[in-house]
Design a protein around this nucleic acid. Structure first.
Ligand SMILES: NC(=O)c1ccc[n+]([C@@H]2O[C@H](COP(=O)([O-])OP(=O)(O)OC[C@H]3O[C@@H](n4cnc5c(N)ncnc54)[C@H](O)[C@@H]3O)[C@@H](O)[C@H]2O)c1
Ligand SMILES: NC(=O)c1ccc[n+]([C@@H]2O[C@H](COP(=O)([O-])OP(=O)(O)OC[C@H]3O[C@@H](n4cnc5c(N)ncnc54)[C@H](O)[C@@H]3O)[C@@H](O)[C@H]2O)c1
Lengths: 212, 212
DNA sequence: ATCAAACTGTGAACGGATTCACAGCGTGAA
DNA sequence: TTCACGCTGTGAATCCGTTCACAGTTTGAT
């Protein structure tokens, strides 16, 4: 089930939707695969392949209808209603994330934050209430939360992940520089900024060499 | 030159190094490919392939010598000396990044921040001086900066990228939800948290379905 | 009504990353 | 000294995402 749709394709669909939303705001009604590809930094064939995943059809002469395509991607990516997300660790990064996602997407919303620091709990941060860790299991259950963001220090991440998985969460977005050990039924996406930065630095150096 | 070493391999090497540093702290002297693989969430064969990239050899009976392997990865990934990094956009995310990377890695350091907000410039934030945008070109040149982090609002990102590239930067770590248009000689790594979160939410929902 | 043009939809080809599978090797035991 | 073991190093095979290439389609022009 996990491999049925490659996660790369899911990423592209998410990107397409954002690009299309911009186009819709500019009153663009139709778009060709090569135009969307250009904006997404992909090939036209790739875009058309991705349309196949959606089962979405365009017109050979007009291209894809922007409004309907946005809807089709939403029907594929989004849950039926609101999907609530939990955030654990309201530190520097956690707060940045809260501020960014606050009220941004209608279908995806961080509605519960948790922290072990007594100074941070029982108050609302960027519109999201911050709770004590003791409340995690019950709140996750009550709100049927299946997705959580881990933004605690590396040493705490595994314990937090265990608690989340124990509470029923089966999708984790992990910012801690650790590989979480979780049951196979749990999807983990690691955002590893140290690695990303090292990679950019590495290739930047290589580009310099090439230019010389 | 860019495709010579797949960027996936660079990411893994960066991860290996961090895992190995933890092991070294625990006084572990040698490690087998399957042990490192397990920690990194990869296969043993993959680890051995990556050792080939480094031209690094292990002993059939002891495995790889941790200290020497850390050094070998450093020799491959790191610049000769200190590689300085610039950060543009000292908002919520920019500050989190500054606090995180402050004095963390010896070879990679964010030594110049820039912001267009007069309230933020001409002071030191998390140990990093924040400058006016007007100073960007000259400081990048003086410090020989080739790598930069873009953490400004989406609408500003392209202009900022143009300024950075114009100043000679050829590696960008971009947090803005936009595809930057840059010359082919510039390496761009996009960190797209909206897409990452949508992806996790999508697979978390699928996992639920599978369990039922 | 016919045709030219430019797109879409998709089977097939491709290529690069991953995994397999095993020869070669160093070591410790007998 | 010899042997058995379990690892490394790596050519070959495999897998899977991407791209190619073209038949099919729609529309606007003549
Ligand atoms: N800030 C960044 O830009 C950045 C970059 C890369 C990685 N990271 C990683 O993200 C994580 C968070 O980074 P940060 O800069 O926000 O750190 P931080 O120290 O500012 O925040 C960590 C927060 O987690 C809370 N916490 C600690 N232990 C906890 C526990 N057991 N349960 C619940 N909450 C707990 C703390 O009270 C604090 O509020 C770290 O793992 C860090 O390595 C951050
Ligand atoms: N905060 C997050 O967790 C998060 C998540 C995903 C994406 N992002 C993206 O990262 C970027 C920054 O997010 P943020 O939350 O820090 O936003 P923010 O509004 O808090 O900070 C933006 C900073 O950029 C500065 N700035 C604006 N225009 C500039 C310009 N032309 N030149 C230089 N500086 C300029 C502002 O003064 C401000 O300090 C945005 O593109 C956002 O979409 C942030």
């Amino acid at each position: 089930m996990l491999g049925q749709w490659p996660d790369k394709a899911i990423e592209r669909l998410s990107l397409y939707r954002r690009l299309l939303a911009n186009l819709a705001a500019e009153r663009v009604k139709f778009i060709y695969s090569h135009e969307l590809a250009q904006k997404a930094g992909r090939t036209a064939a790739q875009v058309r392949r991705d349309m196949m995943i959606l089962g979405f059809s365009g017109s050979p002469t007009k291209g894809y209808e922007v409004a309907r395509l946005i809807e089709a991607i939403g029907g594929f990516l989004d849950a039926g209603g609101l999907q609530e997300i939990a955030l654990v660790g309201v530190g520097n990064l956690g707060r940045a994330i809260l501020s960014y996602f606050a009220g941004r997407r209608p279908n995806l919303s961080i509605t519960a934050a948790f922290d072990s620091d007594p100074a941070k709990v029982d108050r609302v941060i960027h519109g999201c209430p911050c709770h004590r860790m003791e409340e995690l299991a019950s709140l996750v259950a009550v709100k049927s939360i299946n997705t959580a963001i881990v933004a605690v220090p590396a040493g705490e991440a595994q314990a937090v992940a265990d608690a989340l998985v124990g509470a029923g969460v089966c999708g984790l977005l992990n910012f801690a520089p650790v590989r979480l050990r979780v049951p196979g039924a749990v999807f983990v996406e690691n955002v590893d900024l140290t690695t990303s930065l090292e990679k950019v630095a590495f290739f930047a150096r290589r580009q310099l060499l090439r230019q010389e």
